[in-house]
């Protein structure tokens, strides 16, 4: 795993996952998958606990199943060009996470794959991430402020656009997930609870923040 840092101006240095010319190293995709799967597995019980409070109580288990399935085929994904790899990962997540989260997390990766170039620079990465967030919003017929994963994705995108450093980005993600606690759920199973959804963190927001941390820290070489 090569180490690199997101510097203050928002460019990735030449030893990072994105090298000077913006090429993503195939080996790093495998590392990213592995760290993401480890993170989800380590927090599966916590995620399920959050989901039991206001959802149907299977989020941790479902996410773990999905990311383990991706990990099992990491070698195959790593041989593909980045757009194809992301699309394949998304499809795998759709099929294996199940529930309502499968299409939502799957769409995030499939849309990223659709928009990203084979050798993305930072601008392309940002644009693709923005489009992917729009795709998730469309899939879930949701928007920011409705106690969903979008409430983490959007602040993370904003932080990236502002050229924040890795630790600042993971911080923003964690704070954004925390900020879903006082929100009232307007989408998904939790919305049936109305006001009773207030006071609990959204499980999808939490898992999104965990994934942001896994990806960012891997790129930063801290994982």
């Amino acid at each position: 795993m090569s180490a690199g840092t997101l510097d203050k101006t928002g460019t990735l240095d030449k030893t990072g996952t994105l090298d000077k010319t913006g090429t993503m190293d195939k080996l790093d995709l495998k590392t990213l998958i592995s760290v993401a799967a480890d993170t989800i597995a380590a927090h599966a019980e916590e995620l399920t606990g959050l989901d039991q409070a206001i959802g149907d109580g299977d989020h941790g288990l479902n996410m773990k199943r999905g990311f383990e399935a991706v990990r099992a085929e990491a070698d195959i994904f790593a041989t593909k060009p980045l757009p194809d790899a992301l699309k394949a990962i998304g499809t795998k997540l759709v099929m294996t996470i199940g529930g309502a989260s499968g299409p939502l997390f799957g769409t995030l990766f499939m849309a990223l794959g659709k928009e990203i170039s084979a050798e993305p620079d930072r601008a392309n990465l940002m644009a693709a991430f923005g489009k992917a967030i729009e795709a998730v919003a469309a899939r879930g017929k949701s928007q920011v402020g409705q106690k969903t994963m979008l409430d983490v994705l959007q602040p993370v995108h904003d932080a990236l656009l502002q050229g924040k450093t890795g630790p600042e980005i993971t911080d923003a993600a964690d704070r954004a997930a925390d900020a879903t606690v006082p929100m009232k759920a307007l989408r998904g199973r939790a919305s049936f609870l109305g006001d009773r959804s207030i006071g609990h963190m959204d499980a999808g927001a939490r898992s999104t923040a965990l994934l942001v941390r896994a990806v960012t820290e891997t790129i930063e070489g801290q994982a």
Binding site: T91, A100, G102, R189
Partner: peptide, 13 residues
Amino acid sequence: GGAETNSEMAVEM
């Protein structure tokens, strides 16, 4: 809701 989301995903795929 999840049935609708998953059905729309299936149509897209």
